[in-house]
């Protein structure tokens, strides 16, 4: 069953077409990463799914409930955390979570107990009795995410949950998020960080100008866009030129040379075979590579190719050991 199903969502803001017939499906218990540059329509989609905004047209269901017809029922089963930490800065961390629990109608005692549990889980126990005004940005984000998990909702929607966090806090957030997914929750998350989508998402939808322009698992997307390439770094320019001839033959495709870096690369289909064959021929020709390996396209390449824009933060290219 699909936990989230959106069909043909269209939303205009005046002249701007924020969503242009977006379709999305998130099977129960999976994580969908919604990826796209700024202004692609990520936040608009999230606001529609979480009942905050009505689309101009289209259909949207969460756990089989029509969001437009029964928003109240949907609010009872979703947990939401937005792009800007929506916590009350004049309340303490504990008071914030207790208030959210009360508004989910947990009752006073349960709301308090749950607040304490979450504060502990998010490493905020020491700060529980301090007003949020004194919290760092990372602490606010954590508290906001905790707010989304107060009822252990079956469907969680997070809009750029780790934007602006330091790497350690980000890892901590990923931990908690994965834990909820292992417990059976369905998650839709928007992000500009490809690494985040790669780590957390089972499926990725890349959107741009309000439309899905690609979808698949992270691996599928990488394969579709870049495939693999064989890359060799040599000790001298002369060696690089000889290597270019060898690689062109082995890979059956024109090898590209970066003369300054003494580096040569060519696209391959049968990666491991090409690597072994190339090593053999280098050996026979008396060439000793400084570095040799198969490189797979990263989600950065995917993003660049599909949207023509660099992602928010470069992540290092992944090397596949051969």
């Amino acid at each position: 069953m699909n936990a989230i199903r959106a069909e043909g969502l269209v939303k205009h803001y005046g002249e701007v077409r924020a969503l242009d017939g977006l379709d999305l499906t998130v099977p129960e218990g999976t994580v969908l990463g919604l990826l796209g540059p700024n202004g692609a329509g990520k936040t608009t989609s999230v606001r529609i799914i979480t009942t905050l905004l009505k689309p101009d047209s289209g259909h949207i269901e969460v756990n089989g409930i029509d969001v437009l017809r029964h928003p109240d029922q949907v609010r009872r089963i979703i947990g939401v955390s937005g792009q800007y930490a929506a916590v009350d800065e004049y309340l303490t961390g504990h008071e914030n979570l207790e208030m959210i629990g009360r508004l989910y109608h947990l009752g006073k005692r349960k709301a308090r107990a749950r607040a304490e549990e979450l504060l502990e889980r998010f490493n905020l126990t020491d700060a529980a009795k301090r007003t949020v005004k004194t919290y760092s940005g990372g602490m606010r984000r954590r508290l906001d995410l905790a707010g989304a998990l107060v009822i252990s909702p079956p469907v969680i929607v997070l809009d750029e949950p780790t934007t602006g966090l330091d790497p350690r806090s980000r890892l901590g957030m990923w931990d908690v998020i994965s834990e909820r997914v292992r417990a059976g929750a369905t998650l839709l998350l928007t992000t500009q960080y490809l690494e985040e989508a790669d780590q957390l998402a089972d499926n990725i939808v890349v959107i741009d100008h309000g439309r899905a322009i690609a979808q698949g698992t992270p691996d599928e997307l990488k394969r579709e866009v870049g495939g693999e390439r064989l890359e060799v770094t040599l000790g001298s320019r002369a060696e690089a030129q000889s290597a270019q001839e060898i690689l062109t033959k082995v890979c059956a495709s024109e090898a590209i040379i970066d003369e300054a870096a003494h580096r040569v690369h060519a696209p391959v289909t049968r990666g491991s075979w090409a690597l072994i064959e190339a090593v053999r021929q280098f050996d026979a020709a008396g060439i000793e590579p400084v570095d040799i390996g198969i490189h797979r396209a990263s989600l950065d390449d995917v993003f660049m190719k599909l949207t023509g824009q660099a992602p928010a933060e470069p992540s290092t290219e992944q090397e596949v050991a051969a």
Partner: peptide, 9 residues
Amino acid sequence: VDRFRSLPM
């Protein structure tokens, strides 16, 4: 207000 509007209150 967004936070409140996403709650079943």
